[in-house]
């Protein structure tokens, strides 16, 4: 199967000289659920933001759905971004708008001109957004302000927004870092189910090893901007963990997280 996303020798250097990523080469195919693990500052967040060019790469090629992101401008860039649904650690909702409106934001990239400016969404889109929110257990909150929801609910709205884009790939930047274990479980299951049902590719940055092991089809380990592990969850042994986190720094498993490794 053709990869939906390819990194070819991608490096990112920030203006202050810090190397965020070094020579990353990686292919991701539809249906894959890839967890990216690594210590803080290892470049996980940068890696995701290179995909839709929220951060531009310094060198190398990021190829999304057959197109090199570096060359795109204006409308072409926005068209590529539409294909990428993004889920954030801080949910990144517009708090003063309703849950329904936040979910519909996923369609903004598909609306042009005046319709997009005024938010005149198609009737079919509205129906779909409503059904999606109901299926995510948010039916009762459609008209609540997004700012009034709990963390887990906000993240489900974030997922609904990403799915409304009809994306080809989901990028999730620490989606459960700010959530309690029960909400985290719901979010991870939702991400896995939606990825399977829609045959998407899903790339998730995670700090929780057990969660990564439980949900992923593949795990990628970063250390100081370099790719030091790429393989199946079973292959993530003590030696691999030591390469990723450094000897003696492997994070301990929290009991709650171990509980939903089923």
């Amino acid at each position: 199967m053709q990869p939906i996303l390819s990194f070819r020798n991608v490096s990112k250097r920030y203006a202050n000289g810090a190397h965020a990523l070094e020579d990353i080469t990686l292919d991701i195919r539809p249906g894959e659920f890839v967890s990216v693990i690594g210590p803080s500052g290892s470049g996980k967040s940068t890696l995701l933001r290179l995909v839709n060019r929220l951060i531009p790469a310094t060198s190398g090629h990021v190829i999304l759905d057959g197109r090199d992101m570096a060359r795109l401008r204006g409308a072409d860039l926005r068209a590529q971004r539409r294909k990428v649904g993004m889920v954030f650690q801080n949910y990144n909702l517009v708090h003063r708008l309703s849950v329904f409106q936040n979910a519909l934001h996923g369609r903004l990239g598909h609306l042009g001109g005046l319709r997009g400016l005024l938010g005149l969404y198609a009737e079919a889109d509205k129906r779909r957004a409503f059904d999606l929110l109901v299926s995510l257990g948010l039916g009762a909150f459609c008209y609540a302000r997004a700012g009034e929801l709990s963390g887990g609910q906000k993240q489900r709205v974030g997922i609904a927004r990403a799915i409304m884009q009809d994306p080809k790939i989901l990028l999730c930047d620490e989606p459960i870092a700010s959530l309690d274990p029960a909400s985290a479980k719901t979010i991870m299951e939702t991400l896995r189910d939606e990825t399977r049902r829609r045959n998407l590719a899903c790339v998730v940055n995670l700090h929780q090893l057990d969660v990564a092991r439980a949900y992923s089809t593949r795990i990628v380990g970063l250390r100081q901007g370099r790719l030091v592990f790429d393989g199946a969850p079973d292959a993530l042994d003590a030696a691999a963990l030591a390469r990723i986190y450094g000897p003696g720094h492997v994070p301990a498993a929290a009991p709650e997280e171990a509980a939903h490794a089923s």
Partner: peptide
């Protein structure tokens, strides 16, 4: 900046980000 970043990631234009974010 968070709410604006998400609209950028969606592929929204500048006027859309202004109107909806």
């Amino acid at each position: 900046q968070d709410g604006l970043e998400s609209l950028l990631a969606i592929g929204a234009t500048f006027p859309q980000r202004v109107a909806h974010g």
